[in-house]
């Protein structure tokens, strides 16, 4: 479904992504793990169209999306990004956030209402808080809102950027359970994450990103058992 081929990305004149190639097949959960500064957000922002690659191409369902398409058109193709730090609109209510997420389907009022209802089913806490300002929700609730908002257009591919970032440990588990649910029932998921262990639990396949290049790849189970993971985060034991 998604093919990333030898993509190089520069940020502020520095080449941050140095030629990565990977793919995501329909129905899969693929995770890219890596420690800080590895370039995870850069990769996912490039797929979403917020950044343009220096070279290389990204194909979605065989259409090249890395060339000229602005981010908003990529969303229309069916790729939704739940960005780093959640980025919910703090001065909008929970309901308004969801409506914005469904902007592309706003003309079909019946569909919009159905979708919102679906989101409330999946994330009951949002139904309770629907009139609350999103900025006053807890971190975990904001993450749920961000995911629900991304799901409003029923995307073919859901991108998640470090859903665990800044979340207290109890919320992290809940959020990942939610993501696993989504995977079981709905969409294809590509997720970048620092918390390797918990991400690998819900993934089918994994890639390890280290300073802009992919250093390991394989099934999630294999990667999880590999001792080199700890090394890539904490260094070789002296």
């Amino acid at each position: 479904m998604l093919r990333v081929e030898d993509v190089h990305v520069a940020y502020d004149k520095v080449e941050v992504i140095k030629g990565v190639t990977f793919n995501v097949n329909q129905g899969e959960v693929v995770v890219i793990i890596g420690s800080n500064g590895a370039g995870k957000t850069t990769v996912i922002n490039t797929i979403a169209g917020l950044l343009r690659p220096l070279s290389g191409s990204i194909y979605f369902n065989d259409e090249c999306i890395s060339d000229k398409l602005p981010a908003e058109k990529i969303v229309a193709r069916g790729i939704a990004l739940c960005p780093e730090g959640r980025q919910i609109f703090p001065q909008h209510t929970v309901y308004e956030n969801l409506v914005l997420g469904g902007y592309l389907i706003r003309k079909d009022k019946a569909l919009l209402t159905r979708r919102i209802e679906q989101m409330y089913e999946m994330f009951p806490i949002l139904r309770t808080r629907y009139k609350q300002m999103a900025g006053t929700l807890s971190g975990g609730e904001q993450q749920m809102l961000a995911i629900a908002r991304a799901m409003m257009i029923d995307p073919k591919l859901l991108l998640l950027d470090e859903p665990s970032a800044g979340l207290a440990p109890i919320y992290v588990q809940a959020v990942f359970d939610m993501i696993a649910d989504l995977a079981r029932n709905y969409t294809t998921i590509l997720l970048v994450e620092q918390m390797a262990n918990i991400a690998l639990d819900i993934a089918d396949r994994a890639y390890v990103l280290e300073t802009g290049s992919i250093s390991m790849e394989g099934s999630a189970a294999d990667i999880k058992k590999d001792p080199r993971i700890i090394e890539s985060y904490l260094g070789k034991k002296g």
Partner: peptide
């Protein structure tokens, strides 16, 4: 620090299983 399990968990997350 490198071998402290809390540190490893902080970076990689808890091992669920």
């Amino acid at each position: 620090v490198q071998t402290n399990p809390e540190v490893i968990e902080a970076y990689l997350g808890k091992k669920v299983v």
